Amino acid sequence: MPDDVARAHAEGLDQALRESVATKSDLEKVEASLRSDITKVDAKIDVTGADLRTEIANSANRLAAEFNATIYKAIGVVGAMIAASSVVAHFWK
């Protein structure tokens, strides 16, 4: 094979490899970018988890307060019924 043809083939192969094969430096850049993205996602997960825990705690507190209010109302109604039955029983004697 003549030198000029061999040189043309070598240059073509060199160009093809430069465009399609990743170097160690290329891979290190991609790795650094992925690590950065993973760190950002982890931070978002942490914030979202904290927000959810706060919202769950707030909801639980509201539910407990509503439950307690309902119990107090029920006790009041039962007390009123007992008082009313005592009054009725007194008049029926």
Rank of each mutant, 00 (worst) to 15 (best):
M1S: 06
P2S: 08
D3K: 06
D4P: 01
A6E: 09
R7Y: 04
H9F: 08
E11I: 10
L13K: 11
L13C: 01
D14I: 09
Q15Y: 06
R18D: 09
E19G: 03
S20K: 10
T23D: 09
T23K: 10
K24F: 02
S25G: 04
S25R: 10
D26C: 05
E28K: 13
V30S: 08
S33D: 10
L34W: 12
R35I: 08
S36Q: 12
S36L: 10
I38D: 08
I38C: 08
K40W: 07
K40C: 06
D42N: 15
A43Y: 07
K44C: 08
T48P: 00
G49W: 06
D51M: 12
T54W: 01
E55T: 08
I56P: 00
S59Q: 07
S59H: 05
N61E: 12
N61M: 07
R62M: 02
L63H: 06
E66A: 14
E66D: 14
F67V: 11
N68H: 05
N68L: 04
A74R: 11
A74I: 06
G76H: 04
V77K: 12
A80E: 14
A80I: 02
I82Q: 11
A83F: 02
S85K: 13
V88H: 01
V88Y: 02
A89S: 05
W92T: 06
W92A: 10
K93Y: 02
K93F: 01
